[in-house]
C-alpha cells in the first residue's frame, strides 16, 4: 500500500463527504485543474479537427484555406500512410513479444532472488534515460566505425556485411533491441508486482495436490498475474504509439522508409514538410486508436479497484 494510514479504514472503504456543504467545497478544488486541462487538451483537439479540413498557412497570421476532405482523401490513398501502420504494427508486436517473454522470465527469477532490491535499482536505470539519448547511445554502439555492438556482432560472425542501421533488413530490429533494453524492466516490474499477489496458500494447496513448480505456475501464478500482464502489454503498446524518440535518433525513418512508423511519418509531414493540415488528419486517426486502447487500459485499471465494502454499501 502506498501510504501507511495505520488504520483499517482504507480496507473498509472510504466513506465520502455526504453533506451538501461538502460537495460545495469540492468544486473549487476540482475546477481549476479541469479548466486548465480542458484548455490544454479539448481546445487543441477542436483545433486539430479544424486543421484537418484546412491547408494550414505557415507565415505568421497567414489564413488557412478550407480544403474540405482533401487531407482525408489524401491520407486514405497515401501508400506510405498504410505502410507506416504496417511498420508500427510489426515493430510493436515484435518488441511486445520479446519484452513480455523476457520480462516475465525476469520477474519470476527476481522474485526468487536474494538481491531483488538491488537488481530492481539496476533495472530501473535504463528507464530514467531520455529516450533520445538512449537512441544516440545505441546509434554509437551500432556505428560501423566506432560501435562496440557492431564490432561484437562482426566478431562472433552474426553480421557479414553492411552496417546494422544502414540495412533495411536489420534497422527495425536494431530499434526493437533498444526498446527491449530500455523497457523490458518495466514489464518485469509490473509482472513482479503481480507475482507478489499470488496467494501463497493457493500455491501451497497446489503443491499438496502434487503439482511441480511448472504446473503450479500455470495453475496458480499465471491466472493471478494475467491482469498485470495485460496492463504491461497495453502500456507498452500505448508508448510505442506515443514515443518516437528512438526512431528520430537512430534512423529518422530510413533506410528506405523501413523504420518509418506512423507517428514518425506524422512528425515528418507536420514538422519537416509543414503539411500541418495533412498531419492533423493523421494525428486524428492516431488519437482514435489511442482512445480505443485507452478504454481498454481504463477498464483494466478499474478491475483492480477494490470492490465497495460493507461501509460503502451502508452509506450508498
Amino acid at each position: 500500500m502506498a501510504v501507511d494510514t495505520a488504520t483499517p479504514g482504507a480496507v473498509l472503504g472510504t466513506p465520502r463527504p455526504n453533506t451538501p456543504r461538502a460537495r460545495r467545497y469540492l468544486a473549487p478544488l476540482l475546477l481549476p485543474a479541469v479548466i486548465l486541462l480542458a484548455l490544454l487538451s479539448i481546445y487543441p483537439f477542436v483545433w486539430l479537427i479544424y486543421m484537418s479540413f484546412h491547408a494550414v498557412g505557415l507565415a505568421p497570421g497567414a489564413p488557412s484555406e478550407f480544403v474540405g476532405l482533401d487531407n482525408w482523401q489524401r491520407m486514405f490513398t497515401d501508400s506510405q500512410y498504410w505502410a507506416s501502420w504496417g511498420v508500427l504494427a510489426r515493430y510493436s508486436v515484435v518488441s511486445m513479444v520479446l519484452e513480455v517473454g523476457l520480462g516475465t522470465l525476469l520477474a519470476i527469477l527476481l522474485n526468487r532472488s536474494k538481491h531483488e532490491k538491488l537488481l530492481i535499482t539496476v533495472l530501473l536505470m535504463p528507464m530514467m534515460m531520455a529516450p533520445v539519448v538512449a537512441g544516440l547511445l545505441w546509434q554509437y554502439l551500432y556505428n560501423g566505425t566506432f560501435g562496440w555492438y557492431f564490432w561484437g556482432l562482426r566478431s562472433v560472425g552474426l553480421l557479414d556485411e553492411g552496417t546494422i542501421l544502414g540495412s533495411a533488413d536489420t534497422a527495425l530490429w536494431a530499434i526493437v533491441a533498444v526498446d527491449v533494453w530500455e523497457w523490458t524492466p518495466l514489464v518485469a516490474l509490473i509482472v513482479l508486482s503481480g507475482l507478489k499477489l499470488v496467494p501463497q496458500d493457493q500455491l501451497e494447496a497446489s503443491w499438496m495436490d502434487g503439482a511441480g513448480p511448472v504446473r503450479s505456475f500455470f495453475q496458480v501464478a499465471l491466472p493471478s498475474i494475467k491482469g498485470s500482464l495485460m496492463i504491461a502489454i497495453l502500456l507498452r503498446f500505448m508508448d510505442n504509439i506515443r514515443i518516437i524518440d528512438h526512431f528520430i535518433a537512430l534512423t529518422g525513418g530510413g533506410p528506405a522508409n523501413s523504420t518509418k512508423v506512423l507517428p514518425l511519418y506524422l512528425y515528418e509531414q507536420s514538422f519537416s514538410f509543414f503539411e500541418l493540415g495533412y498531419g492533423a488528419s493523421i494525428a486524428l486517426t492516431l488519437l482514435l486508436v489511442t482512445i480505443l486502447f485507452g478504454k481498454l487500459v481504463v477498464n483494466r485499471f478499474e478491475e483492480r479497484e477494490p470492490r465497495p465494502s460493507k461501509k460503502d454499501e451502508e452509506l450508498v
Partner: peptide
Amino acid sequence: VFESYALYP
C-alpha cells in the same frame, strides 16, 4: 470513536 480508529498516523 471511529470503526477504523482513525488515529493520525
